Amino acid sequence: MKMSLLKGLAALLLLPASLSAQSGKNALRNFPAGATPEEIGRKVAARFIATPHTNFGRPFPPRVITYPETCTWYGALTFAQVTGNTPLRQQLANRFEPLFGARDTLIPIPDHVDYTVFGSVPLELYLQTKEDRYLRLGKHIADKQWGPPEGKRVVPASHRFYSQGYTWQTRLWIDDMFMITAVQSQATRATGDRSYIDRAANEMILYLDSLQQPNGLFYHAPSAPFFWGRGNGWMAAGMAELLRSVPKDNPNRPRILQAYRHMMASLLKYQSVDGMWHQLVDDPNSWKETSCTGMFAFAMITGVKNGWLDAKTYGPAARKAWLSLITYLDENADIRNVCEGTNMKNDHQYYLDRKRLTGDLHGQAPLLWCATALLR
């Protein structure tokens, strides 16, 4: 992206609200040249197509498809669908084709939330192509998540959660609430069977009761009382994905919608004047982080488009986030200031010290989600 464009976008962010942001849903339309969701989505999707299977920055290929790749693949597919880009969809299907053959070992065993989310990709491919082989694979993965505990990852808590009607893969890390809801929502969209999304909604209540704090934000885990940016981003995006498809007569929907709105209202208070959010959401001295900013923007865009959020309040906030976010893209369509893959730790400094990566798929994926959401 040329420097002149970046300077122009930066100038837009500094204009008074009455001049820089249109009211309501119109704030999410009519972006300047070089900043439209169509242009950004095409560039980021093309970058993904050209990128080999990634392995969390390691110099060798992964043993199985990683969850950041899954999330980016899913985002690219939804962008292809909403833009009617058949060639892009075919390229994304071609990327999958070896997994039905000699490279089937790259398909993750669905025994952990980070692996099971992979099912969202074949389910999206089924929705777009109607090829049964995608449905069979995706449904198998979604079903395994609520099947009986099995495999080397089973721990005593697995049996306890399973006996209570939750997935045995429950960890009570906020990351889970995208990983679980994405694949289960997709299974309902692909099959029409609401049992998938109903059980995901019930699981969401467990996480809300366990991790959401009075300020609307979420601890990373019960033993990690920090408002980590991307962790909260996973939760925001997960609630948005769930609410897009959970039936209106689901008894858990009002509680989820209330929690989502509470979180969005809190995020407004912590958004920087330039539209970004921070590595630790409530710490303005922590660095500005792009993956969480993209995820929060996606959640707000989705809320405005579906009427869950006040458009005059959240439309301009989401627009500002998008316009700021894309200034972090380089000439290769790689986004910088992406927090590296992060485990849970009871240490404030641990989160501050995480490496800032460029082009990491944790950051590329939310760009595609936002582009899709802006065009829906």
Rank of each mutant, 00 (worst) to 15 (best):
I197L: 13
I197R: 05
I197V: 15
R199P: 05
A201P: 08
A201L: 09
A201M: 10
A201T: 06
N202I: 00
N202K: 13
M204W: 12
I205Q: 06
L206F: 09
Y207A: 06
Y207V: 03
L208A: 12
Q212T: 03
Q212G: 11
N215M: 08
G216D: 05
L217C: 03
L217S: 05
S223A: 03
A224R: 00
A224V: 02
G229V: 01
R230G: 04
R230C: 09
G233R: 02
G233A: 07
A236F: 14
A236K: 03
A237N: 00
A237T: 03
A240W: 12
L242E: 03
L242C: 05
R244W: 06
S245M: 07
V246I: 15
V246T: 11
K248N: 10
N250Q: 01
P251Q: 11
R253G: 01
R253T: 02
R253H: 01
L257S: 02
L257Y: 02
A259N: 02
R261M: 09
R261W: 06
H262C: 10
S266R: 03
S266E: 04
L268Y: 11
L268N: 04
L268H: 10
L268W: 10
Y270K: 02
Q271H: 14
Q271N: 12
V273T: 08
D274F: 14
G275H: 06
M276I: 04
W277K: 04
